[in-house]
Design a protein around this nucleic acid. Sequence first.
DNA 1: GTGAAAGCGCTAACAA
DNA 2: TTGTTAGCGCTTTCAC
Lengths: 336, 336
Amino acid sequence: MSGANHLKKSIKDVARLAGVSSATVSRVLANKPHVREEVKKRVLEAVKTLEYKPSRIAQRLRTQRSQIIGLIVSDVQNSFFTSIARAVEDVAYQHGYAVFLCNSDEDSEKEQLYVDLLLAEEVAGIVISPTREQGSASAIIEAGVPLVTLDRYVKDVDTDRVLSDNIESSKALVQELIQQGHRRIAAVLSDLSITTGRERYEGYTSALAEAGLTVDKKLVFTGKPIEEVGYELAKNLLKTSPMPTAIFSGTRYMSLGVIRAIYEAGLRIPQNVSLASFDKLDWSPGMPEMLYAEQPTYMIGQSAARLLLERIKTPDRPVQHLTLRSKLNFQRKQLT
Amino acid sequence: MSGANHLKKSIKDVARLAGVSSATVSRVLANKPHVREEVKKRVLEAVKTLEYKPSRIAQRLRTQRSQIIGLIVSDVQNSFFTSIARAVEDVAYQHGYAVFLCNSDEDSEKEQLYVDLLLAEEVAGIVISPTREQGSASAIIEAGVPLVTLDRYVKDVDTDRVLSDNIESSKALVQELIQQGHRRIAAVLSDLSITTGRERYEGYTSALAEAGLTVDKKLVFTGKPIEEVGYELAKNLLKTSPMPTAIFSGTRYMSLGVIRAIYEAGLRIPQNVSLASFDKLDWSPGMPEMLYAEQPTYMIGQSAARLLLERIKTPDRPVQHLTLRSKLNFQRKQLT
DNA sequence: GTGAAAGCGCTAACAA
DNA sequence: TTGTTAGCGCTTTCAC
């Protein structure tokens, strides 16, 4: 309750009160050596009574280093990215960093604007899930700002990145369906222009191929990875004849839509049609028995943030590519 | 690919190339009047060829104004706050602001650290969902930084705030249960030391009181507003005898836990026990028929951000309290 | 209409 | 061990 002292204090005020120069105050606060204990104490006292907090702005301008990392995802409301955001923020916090949150909405123009903003803010580094292959990643690289890509990657630039094992897990899911006797397996996937979509498609086709099954293009449905689209695609899918006996769904929200379409058609999972989902769905009553691959979302964000901090510390270290395994769940009943 | 020019340009470089002073460049970029068209053109050209981006850091230090707002929530992974974060970010983006995302984890110490950080960053304003009544809000006020509280509020400080109509909606839900003939209605609520918990409890008791029913303290269960706790509390709840015929659940995640406990006990909703939930659950297959109040989460965040921007623009405007209505849903079947 | 100069709050050489 | 000084990149008087 020290009260009405609204004017923010500068390092000079502290210096004056402690009877030293501002350089000394700076030294004390930075824990630099060569300061007499007695002086140190006086400074610290002055800091306390004035409730002095150094301006990170001035520090940043002076040192050209910031303690901020930018995070660009397509949408925090997507639970995949919610976990990522949380993880990145946690790691940042542990290291005294703050994080700028940016939603690109899969819009490369918005993404570019945010990249410009983050660069203008002189962030220490950027974690991004790039919208398109030819993203604004190169702008970041050119600016010499550390960068880690997440979930997807950029073709022509070799950056630190952390990915899911999209191909392997997708393949494993489809293989399990085949193992269970399915031969006519449809796929509901996100746009194949996005790396995740393409890789999951690749897993799907290669599982079929290895089992000697041909890929029927008419059974591959693609669209925006949202519930609504999953629902619409699945409605069409269920009309093909003969109807597929199993569906591989490539994204969490699409899976929800697929389930809704199946239920609405009066069909049951897995009695009438089996479902394998890339990404686990949150527990809910009446969740059908299905196969799924669960991405370690939090760990993906965590790894990305750590990679970024390491690169900030050591700009010249070799580029790292991390691929994190998803947890496969082939039990009939989905657990909590 | 203008390429290898990694060194970032300063306003001086632009000035030199355009053959003017840096003051003029500044004027042009700020769209100030009194600059000859011809000069303006030359400056803009120089800006373009050098790919010059003004340093927001330097601007901030000079003007003592930032285009940044801080957002402190307990956890972005809580879908209530996910919406909030998204909304705040949207509004910020539309006005050229960036947002710092901070998770306090209901930990007032962490909250305080973040407040300090945000103040040191000299943010233009802060949107916060304060952890405890005696929060760090006063520190923000004292620093003279605009502040909007969200979802909860701080007792002793009168700030702009936006809230849900916790009391009214809770009361309406319980009234509807009573209307349907229930007399023995249990409540599962978050800690009553949090304003939302207390207000929802108030709605619950006042509905009972007005119907001439007495509040049975043994039917009121409180704890941390997470799925697990909702589950545990509901397990105990179902053991009371005679068993309540209806449950009022005060938070989204608790509702999930309550449902799980009920299903695990082999009971059905609403055949064996009715459920009214504060906050809507996401659609999922097998969602039970239940009453719920749906908070306009996105709009809450949006309003908060707008209030904040207005206060930043007009620091002396009168304090505003917004209370947003929840959407009540009394249909038996929850819709998508 | 434009430029020179001061200074926002801090750190880091360099001197003492 | 400590102080003096310069300067990070920008905006904003104040001259002209």
